[in-house]
Design a protein around this nucleic acid. Sequence first.
DNA 1: TTGTAAGCGTTATCAG
DNA 2: CTGATAACGCTTACAA
Lengths: 351, 351
Amino acid sequence: MVRLKDIAARAGLTVMTVSRALRGTSEVSAATRERIRALAAEMGYVPDISARGLRTRNTGLLGVVIPTVIDPIHARMLLALEEQARAGDFDLLLAHTLQQPEIEEACIRRLLGRRIEGLFLLPVYRLAPEAPIYRELRQRGTKVVLVGHPAPFCQDFPSVAVEDLLASAAVTRHLLALGHRRIAFLAGSPTSPAARERLEGYRRALREAGMVADDRLVFNAGTEIEDGAHAALRMIDEGVRPTAIQAVNDLVAIGAANVLLSQGLRIPADISIAGFGNILTSEYFRVPLTTVRQPKYRLGLAAMELMQALLRGEKGESRRLPAELAIRESTAPPPALPPVGGGEAGSAAHS
Amino acid sequence: MVRLKDIAARAGLTVMTVSRALRGTSEVSAATRERIRALAAEMGYVPDISARGLRTRNTGLLGVVIPTVIDPIHARMLLALEEQARAGDFDLLLAHTLQQPEIEEACIRRLLGRRIEGLFLLPVYRLAPEAPIYRELRQRGTKVVLVGHPAPFCQDFPSVAVEDLLASAAVTRHLLALGHRRIAFLAGSPTSPAARERLEGYRRALREAGMVADDRLVFNAGTEIEDGAHAALRMIDEGVRPTAIQAVNDLVAIGAANVLLSQGLRIPADISIAGFGNILTSEYFRVPLTTVRQPKYRLGLAAMELMQALLRGEKGESRRLPAELAIRESTAPPPALPPVGGGEAGSAAHS
DNA sequence: TTGTAAGCGTTATCAG
DNA sequence: CTGATAACGCTTACAA
């Protein structure tokens, strides 16, 4: 490894002069500056950022803690983040939590040892109102940008999140506008604020339309394709026959759609399906879905902007990004006017 | 930030004693060790890894340079890598190249400044036999594990890659065994060794079956869904009517499949489709595809093993990982025995 | 078992 | 414009 010292020796100058010449800072005669620069290039000098950081107290490191990079939404967000980081002359340390609190804690602790200047945190959501590592981050005054919805245990960090509630309500309103009156909802995990917001958006839209949100139309699914399939089967078992289904995400929607198609139902002729878009653009799935396009890349940009503000010592304001409804041929008016009222679960209508 | 010095002051001891106590190294009285430990915990001490590294000359950092983390294959590989890295007490610096040589060079240079101990490199493939930054890596003796196929400009680095040629040949043999004699190939970018291997595997299998690989059945596609669609349209335009299609990857296959389905063809009744699996398990696409399952996670593991060997100062042996053919209902015997011989492009039969 | 001195590669600071 | 000195937080090497 070539060090400043080595260049200084070759140049017959002090380390300091070389350092200054290379940084272009301070006044150094143009002549020597060029000479040093050439020499450094020739010798393949690469400054040691850690050593510099030791002295200047800035490491130029940002941490990203993410459930898993396999999630396409998160991956796109990460891409944006990394591009922005490089532009701002930061390097990115990546760590996965696999949605496990212990791993999350270990990750964060390691990153703290790296003296990261800021942390992008996609939290592992828990119901508990407190989490020790989050408390520690607060005490340390670590600059944290939460990428996701705030929850009790992480409330006081500035955050960037999608307007899930509004977007979900828009989906429901879209279905209502088409004439659907019996809309089932395949819900996600109750520990996930995003999933909860989506359920709440559905309920709010129903209420605003003067209807009663019937819980017999809400099925606990999860986040995976299988979860959607199981939920759809349960729905059929229970004799519930909605004219439309709204799912907490694309995967769940696809799982449900596959089940329905295998039952001989046609989409959207017999039943409409809508939900949030998590994978690809879902246009490439041959299951017709009307989806909410999530602003993945913009989420990354917004997160970085917030971080920049924090790094400048500002307060940093949380932001909610709108999501856009991508209406496709997957949703259509209900096949026939559903019976109004009706007592049994299957025909339980909002009204 | 709490430093060793601070703990030492509070404990009435030297920095050295504290350092030793915390590391558990050397002989320190069990009593003081516990006392120091407790004190450190209470004060929230986190050792500064960079400072330590400055002294010990190991940074505990590994770099990953990747086209984009959006690619599901790469994302899974990255996940494995990160998990392994953490297990080995390394942190991971992530950088994207976006497939652009200049960005790649900039990334690598930055990582060198971080004094990474090793670099996982998913190269930006170019046809040129030399690339300056690769030469520099060689000269520096940086420990590099190539994740991908070797190419002239990066030949001398140890690598981990999938047995694309063999896997591709297996696909073709599978189609041949079903009785297909007119198999089209939708090829990828010629700069990508993996794509080239896949084309070569197809050709080899045909030759081994005593057939002539007819280039009129090979269409340049690319890597995206749209590329597959365009290639399929071109194929149809040129009047080529294969009984089976083999694609360089899943996306291309899906693009082609969508076009064929929209033309009223049924899969696999009228035409069979097979290729490499890049997205999800493609089981969830309602386009029937027989695919090659790529050992994404094992690729990550193997890369890390290779890196460990390099770090131990060993030579490090390149490895090729086999890929498994996932046969599904997407491939079936050809609808009718194709005409043997035949002069025009459309019916151009092998042998 | 504990302490002292020195140094890792860089830059802040003050002096010339 | 350039140099000398000290320091960032930690650990190695040697001394007590």
